[in-house]
Design a protein around this nucleic acid. Structure first.
Length: 135
RNA sequence: CGAGUUGGCUGGGCAGUCGCUGUUGGUGAAUUUUAAUUCACUGGUGGAGGAAAGUCCGGGCUCCAACGGGUAGGGCGCCAGGUAACGCCUGGGAGGCGAAAGCCUACGGAAAGUGCAGCAGAGAGUAAACCGCCUAAGUCUUCAUUUCGGUGAAGAACGGUAAGGGUGAAAGGGUGCGGUAAGAGCGCACCGCAUGACUGGUAACAGUUCAUGGCACGGUAAACCCCGCCUGGAGCAAGACCAAAUAGGGAUCCUAUAGGUGUGACCCGCACUGGAUCCGGGUAGGUUGCUUGAGGUGUCUGGUGACAGGCAUCCCAGAUGAAUGAUUGCCCAAGCUUGUGUAUGACUUGUCAUAUACCGGCUGGACAGAACCCGGCUUAUAGGCCAACUCGACCU
């Protein structure tokens, strides 16, 4: 169990972001935010944030939202396998109370975890099928 | 104690747990050349603001060959001082507001020129007769009178008049007396105004001062304009460097002292250079700039003050897909509230209203986030604290 949040757990270049946008495997969406994710070749998840000035006007609010996303990500990272994740803020997220944001995010992370589990199960099933066919 | 004015300070605190980031020490590992670099673990120690914001001014710094001259454009505008500089600040003057403390002012020139002014009103810029007042002098008519020259009265036109009414934001000094046909700075006195002297003040400017002038010169310059002063442009995505990749091209056309580029206001000057079009290739990433500075704190000296100088002492964020956080508990400020007590007022004489104290419960932090750095301005801001001053009430 790890709660650290170092540089290797973030998306740090435009190329990484582009990978996620172009080949999205999993999508989790909500009225206030949108999460895109894609499996990577590492043994840990990576997080990137897209908080547009258009959607949250003041720098103060943007910082607040980013901190909450990072914090909840940090606490839930063990559930997230080896995904590259990009979180996009939508309009209205800045108006929510801090506790509401936290609740919302925890829910979204668990949803993402579920979808990842489904996907992996599916893959395993198909692999088994292939093996069966091959044998 | 209440009402107010001005200036300044503060912008929740403590502890635990889990994190982010700068720096520094230790241990281990890897690479190579002593040592350095990178990574991991671990200990210490820093880590948003008064506005970090708006990007409205002024600087530093960097580049544009150097920033040279001129024009245009832009900015500023009472005086003196402060400052690296400013459109900022301080002190003073003038005008306006307030009972006062105090506050506000885009505050040069309208006697160089041009322009502009709705409605109302007769007239709005070398003033103007709508109502009103007057009809003296000169003219005409009628009547009376006559010594036949005139004289008197009434009326009329021509005309005079800015005192009164009316219009308007504004009608070309005000009040009084004289004067007059009625009036009028027409004359005089006082007040105001203008010009010149004198006095005070560095100056803006001021004056129970003197002289002169009957008074001219309406407003508007955040309208053009004139006068004085200031001003080259772009910005840290400035700029410099490292490693790596690609290229050191191809085709067509034009040309010989002009053209182009620098040059992003224009001209001159200067510097560099064959040029134009199309095709192809190509700018991913990292380091630096990057925080020691017109610096902070304390104290002394000079100055009314802004501020300046001396001495001592301190080092106080440097992120870059962008750190400075999350959560739990307690405390403090504040708000709401059940209950209890006290005081005052009202009356339906035990209820209601207001103020205040205590115990408990609940809620619970304003505006807002560095991005090269400073000095200002402007705007946002829950509250809390301090000082000085003004006015009012009460007590001594």
């Amino acid at each position: 169990m790890s709660f650290s949040f170092g540089r290797e757990l973030r998306l740090c270049s435009a190329a990484d972001f582009k990978q996620v946008f172009d080949h999205t495997d999993i999508k989790v969406s909500n009225r206030h935010l949108l999460i895109l994710a894609r499996e990577n070749n590492l043994d840990h998840p990576r997080l990137g944030l897209v908080i547009a000035k258009k959607n949250i006007r003041f720098a103060n609010g943007r910082n607040r939202v980013k901190r909450h996303i990072r914090e909840t990500y940090r606490l839930n990272q063990d559930c997230l396998g080896n995904l590259d994740i990009v979180v996009l803020a939508r309009r209205g997220l800045g108006e929510l109370e801090s506790s509401e944001i936290n609740k919302l995010l925890t829910r979204q992370w668990s949803k993402l975890h579920q979808k990842l589990g489904d996907r992996q199960a599916k893959e395993q099933a198909s692999q088994q099928k292939q093996q069966l066919v091959a044998s």
